[in-house]
Design a protein around this nucleic acid. Structure first.
Lengths: 201, 201, 201, 201
DNA sequence: CGCTAATCGAGACGGTACGTCTTGTCTTTTG
DNA sequence: CAAAAGACAAGACGTACCGTCTCGATTAGCG
């Protein structure tokens, strides 16, 4: 029986070809138009080889994104939480602007319609959220952040504007977008209290 | 040829049945599983009648959502911008929690993959953004809001967290979610300056 | 629901194109290599249109053969049963030698492996058998045929040799093959009794 | 390279297991449904072990049938050709009625669609035909059979009815089927000349 | 009596076709 | 003449086998 295939016999070459083909197609023609058949054809692979190792095209692309994230999107801890957040969120914003943004956009869509994919995508997101919360928790202990701020909500306040602008409004963002967002949300929208909008320099 | 059908001969009964059927199906089985065929069948209507008047299922549902928005999601102007924002965003949050949320979720998805729908959905969103910006502009003139705050960004700071939590993380939100978000973003994430996180109560 | 499609709305053009494409492909590349996909492609037709009206490719080809049979393979009644049988069986032998033989061969195969097709093919064959038996029955009443001959068996004795030679041995047959067979089986394999092997002329 | 495998190192145990598994499956689920994969699985053997020694599943089953034939289906020579033919053809008829009939049926099918198998199956058949012709030749010399009877045709007249009834019509045959066939074809279909249809009893 | 070569069971691989499903268009019939 | 009904061409879906290939693990002789 080959119900649970043996991972030790897996062809690493095919795996790489499939991930690359999936990502390339997604960047070229968009997530929806990227079919499993086309991925297989471009990767020079049988369809069954894809279905043997991944439950859906979403899972393939998610694995691709996981590699990107692990390589590029970690948090630093320089002692200055605003600087660290700025560095990370700017990296995210930059990535959204590249072709990889299209891949990620596709996955967020799939999560809405495919229950299986949804779990994985959500788990992926939660990893990022958890990392952010860890950095914010340290900042809270260091007195850099209000002690009463709910960290889940804080993460949403920081990343929410970026997703709203990129994913929903699809508007072009200035390079300093995240810097200005962080200034505003750290200092508050209320007038007067913290001096200028960019007082942390 | 009936390339441009005559709207005056349109059956209002069919239109209503289609809108209702589309919304109901979307709420029951989700956006992706809602097929044009199923909408037609439930509405007791031929498929062509749908394609004659709407370019896609997204357009049908968008028309449905426009009715909802016009009826329920306007901004008040009581002179207190935080109270007005709280009222409107809480209405939005509440709507997200109902079955209508599933419809809106579906449309936001469609906007990612379907270029035609994208324009309409984006236009729909911009109407909401514009209304919010109008209210914020008044607040800025009244000195309730920092004069240097970019209004597009401010809108994103206010709505972004809600969309992030609801659409992407799909986490259950406390009733007072938007109140706490507004408190945090108005007073700022920085500690100490503005007293407690919820000082206006 | 379109579970039982409405035959009155069927496209006669598609039907003809499918029958022709199926028969042509079968003659060109053989029954086994003829795929439903290829039939659809050559007929310029969607696969579903084939599956809507026929349960399998065997059914398509069987319909094709039915037309051929109805047009070409009836029995005459000239009063001379050997002459009538010779005319009909020679027509069958000739048909086996053409491309249509390949189609019929394919169907006889399908009948072995596909239970649904088997019933139809068998029914097709029984029609031919019944026609032959009818002609033989008249001959029996006219005293042209032994009164004690079982007609099913007689049909098998007449057609069996042809099928054995053509289908199983696949050997090239002389034009007069069926004449010689009929002479032998009418006069008997035993020596001496009936004079020459071809006394009926 | 192991292009031509070494027969001396072949596992006799695997060979037997494969032949048995192939025949069993063919009898249980039919020729078409018997896949090479299933044969390998049931035999507890790798697929390659089958493909190493046989070109196709038809070849496997043909080897199985060869064993059966060599053991059971020879011609005797008692001096009475009708009795000898009756003994052999009745043995064939009996075999057709067993599960082995299903195997043989499958091979006759394969011969229609698979050119490689066709040669082997045809050769198998010709061996049987040649044996029959040899016995008939002796009968001809002994004056038991018309001197002008073509022996290929005579074989077809004797075996053709059986194949027609069993393979094509798939009708249940009475035990004495071949006896009656031989009576008819030896005495002839014409009335009157030879007395009753079963005069030799 | 260990070395080495080939067969073995196992099953992943690149492919092809399957029969089903949905899309958006086209056609026929009914009110 | 619009609407209902639904057949149509197109093509992706996920599955089943094909015949080839690559793995260790035996298992033979041959040296």
């Amino acid at each position: 029986m080959s119900r649970q295939p043996d991972p030790s016999r897996r062809s690493e070459q095919s795996r790489q070809a499939i991930l690359a083909a999936a990502a390339d197609l997604c960047m070229e023609i968009g997530y929806a138009a990227t079919t499993v058949e086309a991925i297989a054809a471009r990767a020079g692979v049988g369809k069954q080889t894809i279905y043997r190792w991944w439950p859906s095209k979403a899972a393939v692309l998610l694995e691709y994104m996981r590699r990107i994230r692990d390589a590029r999107l970690g948090f630093a801890d320089t002692g200055d939480v605003r600087a660290d957040l700025l560095a990370q969120t700017t990296a995210v914003q930059t990535l959204f602007g590249t072709n990889l943004g299209a891949v990620w956009r596709g996955l967020l869509i799939a999560a809405q319609s495919d229950d299986v994919a949804a779990g994985d995508v959500r788990a992926f997101l939660e990893v990022a959220v958890t990392e952010a919360k860890a950095r914010l928790a340290k900042a809270q202990q260091a007195g850099e952040l209000r002690a009463d701020a709910d960290l889940d909500m804080t993460v949403e306040i920081i990343f929410g504007p970026l997703y709203h602008a990129w994913l929903l409004r699809a508007r072009p963002l200035p390079e300093a977008y995240m810097k200005d967002v962080l200034d505003l949300v750290f200092d508050g929208l209320k007038p007067g209290e913290g001096g200028t909008a960019a007082p942390q320099g």
